Structure formats: C-alpha cells, structure tokens
Simulated scan of single mutants.
Amino acid sequence: MTNTLQKYISENAVPIVIYLINEHKVNLKIVNQRQTKHGDFRTLPNGKTQITVNNNLNKHQFLLTLIHEIAHHVTYKKFGRVQPHGKEWKTVFQHLMLPFLRPDIYPTNILPYLANHMKNPKASTDADVKLSLALREGMAEPGKSFIFDIPQGSIFQYRNTLYKRGHKRRTRYECLNLTDKRVYLFNQNVEVIPVNQ
C-alpha cells in the first residue's frame, strides 16, 4: 500500500494515511477519471464500505479528496446515516485533515486557502473557487481553459454541449446554452474546451 500511495500523495503524508486506512479499516480503490466527481464513499450490498478516488488528480487534490471520503466513512461508522455533508461530517473532516495542514505536505501557496476552506468545508472543493485554483496551481487540463480565460462572447464546449460565454456576475459567469437557448451560471474555475470560431 505504501508504494501505491507514494505515487498519489506527498511522501510525508503517507504514514498518516496508512494509519487512517488501518485504523478505520478503509477499503480504498483508485479508479479512472470520472467527469462528475473526484471521489466517493459508498456502502456495498454486502454491508462493507468502499472509497474510490480518481487516479488523475495531482498529489494535493488526491490527498484532500481521500481524507474527504475517509471522513464520510468515519462519520457513517460513528453516527450511521446523517446528512452527507452535515455538521457531523464537517467535524470529522476537520479533525482528520488537521495533521496534514503542514508546509511539508501542502505548499505555502495552498495552505492559507486550505486552512480557510477547513473552517467550514463544502461538499466539493470545486465549490471553493480559490482553493480549487490553488490546488490545480492555476493550470487547466491540456486542451482545456478555465472559463475566466475565455473571452466574453466566445463559444466553448462543456460536457458535449456548446455555450456562449456572457457577462460575469459576482462570482459566476452567465453562459447561453446554444441548444436549448437557456442561460446557465458557471463557476469561474470550470474547465471548458474553447471552440475556434
């Protein structure tokens, strides 16, 4: 397990993660990228639980996602069925993340955003725009751009649908779906495929 984890997380985080996996009897499965989520926690039909994490995440995203899902596992074992991202989960997640909030695990350009996020963790790190961009080090996937880098009025593709980028509201962009002609709001850290016009 140590050799596998070293491919996906900071070397300094490995002993703590191994401890958590053993202590809480976590069944971890590393899977191919999924478009809609970085990881998940589920109860299997046989009563056992399983955590999956996408294999395409960088080391900082992978560790945060893994601890997020371990927090679901621990919350389920401790409290049974409760709100998925309710106060019980938040408390457990904060407690589990504390040992990782160190500059030898998370770089100093990420730590302030991560510490701020952990005050009141959201259901998805992507919902925290500043943290999401810091975790990705301001780099979009190859062939994609962040929506804030697309000029207003430009066409882009998102999940096999074409949109036209409109005005920025306070924190999100209005984008016209060219198929159904409805306006949708996009977070500024969404990665899209620019379409040459």
Rank of each mutant, 00 (worst) to 15 (best):
T4A: 08
L5C: 08
E11Q: 13
N12K: 15
I16K: 12
I18L: 15
L20S: 01
L20N: 03
N22Y: 10
N22Q: 15
N22E: 15
E23H: 15
K25W: 02
V26S: 10
L28W: 06
V31R: 14
R34L: 14
H38D: 12
G39M: 07
G39A: 05
D40E: 14
R42Y: 12
R42M: 13
T43S: 09
L44Y: 04
L44C: 05
N46E: 13
K48Y: 08
Q50A: 09
T52I: 15
V53S: 07
N54V: 01
N55G: 04
L57F: 11
N58D: 10
H60R: 00
Q61C: 13
L63Y: 10
I70N: 05
A71I: 11
H72D: 07
V74A: 06
T75H: 08
K77H: 14
F79I: 00
F93M: 14
F93Q: 04
Q94T: 08
P99Q: 08
P99R: 10
I105G: 07
T108V: 14
N109P: 00
N109I: 09
I110G: 02
N116D: 14
K119H: 10
K119E: 14
K119V: 12
N120Y: 12
P121A: 05
P121D: 06
A123V: 08
A123P: 05
S124K: 09
S124Y: 13
T125Q: 07
T125M: 07
T125Y: 06
K130L: 10
K130G: 00
L131E: 07
L133G: 01
L135D: 02
L135S: 03
P142E: 13
P151K: 14
P151R: 09
G153P: 00
Y158S: 04
Y158T: 02
N160A: 09
T161Q: 02
L162E: 14
K164P: 02
K168F: 11
T171V: 11
Y173F: 15
E174R: 12
L176H: 06
N177D: 06
Y184W: 09
L185I: 04
L185Q: 13
Q188G: 12
V195P: 01
